[in-house]
């Protein structure tokens, strides 16, 4: 289990400007839908954006606090 604040702080460690929206998909605090908006994504293909998020959350994913993630990654201009 992990809280959205802790996940947000992990993401902001590598993307300080990131605005993170967290939806707990099953109420078990380990299956999440994440929307991350950051200028770091600007001009980057979708897969690389998702890799950036997975890298930021590498620790809580590896230790099992996060079981499943659905990701949306947008640049500040919505692209």
């Amino acid at each position: 289990m992990i809280t959205s604040d802790v996940m947000t702080s992990y993401i902001q460690q590598s993307m300080p400007d990131a605005v993170v929206t967290v939806i707990d998909l099953k109420g078990t605090m380990d299956h999440f839908k994440l929307k991350v908006v950051s200028e770091a994504f600007s001009g980057k293909p979708i897969m690389d954006r998702h890799r950036m998020i997975y890298q930021a959350l590498d620790v809580p994913m590896k230790d099992g606090r996060i079981h499943a993630l659905e990701i949306t990654a947008e640049a500040n201009d919505g692209s």
Binding site: M47, H50, Y54, M61, T72
Partner: peptide, 23 residues
């Protein structure tokens, strides 16, 4: 360089999962 499952390949190329394919 993708930590999760499922992993999708189309025509021999990797495309992540539906989070990538939907957009």
């Amino acid at each position: 360089n993708w930590p999760t499952l499922p992993k999708v390949f189309i025509g021999g190329t990797f495309y992540g999962d539906t989070d990538v394919l939907d957009p």
